[in-house]
Computed example of a mutant assay.
Amino acid sequence: MSEVLRAALVIARRDFSAVIFSKTFILFLLGPLFPVVIGMAFGGLGEKITTESLRPTIGVAMTAADGGRMERAHRILSARMGAENLPKLQRAPKGNPRTLLTRPDARFIAIVSGSVERPILTGKSGDLAALEGDVSLLASAALAGERLPHVQVRKQLVAASAGAEAQSRLLTGRAAQVLVFLLTMLLAGMVLSNLVEEKTNKVIEILAAAVPIDAVFLGKLLAMLAMSFVGICFWGSGIVAGVKLLAGPDIAPPTPAVGWPVFLLLGAVYFTMAYALLGSLFLGIGAQAATVREVQTLNMPVTMAQMGIFFFATYAVDHMGSAPEIAAIIFPFSSPFAMIARAAQDASIWPHLLAIIWQACWVAVIIRLGVWLFRRHVLKSGQASGGRLFRRRSAVVK
Rank of each mutant, 00 (worst) to 15 (best):
A65C: 04
V203I: 15
G133V: 13
L9V: 14
P119V: 06
S161T: 09
V203S: 04
L265K: 02
R118I: 08
V36D: 02
H74Y: 10
L45K: 09
L221H: 04
S78H: 03
A268D: 02
R147Q: 13
T200H: 14
I11Q: 10
A209L: 06
Y270R: 03
V262S: 11
I251P: 06
V37H: 02
R13G: 10
A316Y: 01
G259F: 04
P212V: 00
V153R: 11
V258Y: 02
G259N: 09
S113F: 03
A175I: 05
G248R: 11
A141K: 06
E132R: 15
H352W: 01
W350E: 11
R368N: 09
I367H: 02
L195E: 04
L100P: 03
E71H: 10
M185Q: 11
L27H: 05
A144P: 09
F108W: 15
A210W: 03
M227S: 15
W350H: 11
L9M: 13
I356W: 03
A129Q: 14
Q152N: 11
L283C: 04
L183M: 12
I20A: 11
S17L: 13
I356E: 01
A328C: 08
V211F: 12
C233P: 00
A64W: 02
L183N: 05
G231V: 08
L128P: 07
A257R: 01
L27E: 00
A139S: 12
A139D: 06
V180A: 03
D346I: 15
T50V: 10
S115M: 06
F271R: 07
R107W: 05
P93L: 00
A164F: 08
L369G: 09
G386E: 10
A364P: 05
T291V: 07
L245Q: 10
N201H: 12
R98W: 00
I11D: 02
F331C: 09
I357T: 14
F217H: 04
S237R: 10
A274W: 01
T102H: 10
G231D: 05
F310Y: 14
A142F: 02
M339N: 05
F263A: 04
F25S: 06
L246T: 14
R375F: 00
E294Q: 13
K220D: 03
K199Q: 02
S322R: 06
L353V: 15
E71M: 15
G242L: 13
L379G: 15
M300R: 14
D66S: 09
R169C: 05
G123T: 01
G286D: 06
G321T: 09
V191N: 09
V216W: 04
F181G: 10
T184C: 07
L266Y: 11
T314L: 14
A159G: 12
L128T: 08
Q359G: 15
K244I: 03
T200E: 04
H74G: 05
S115F: 01
L277Q: 08
G286T: 11
D250T: 14
P261A: 09
C361E: 00
M300Q: 12
G43A: 02
V371R: 08
E52I: 12
L5Y: 08
Q177N: 04
A347M: 03
L30A: 12
V365K: 00
A344V: 10
N96C: 00
L222D: 02
D346E: 09
V191P: 08
V302Q: 08
I38P: 04
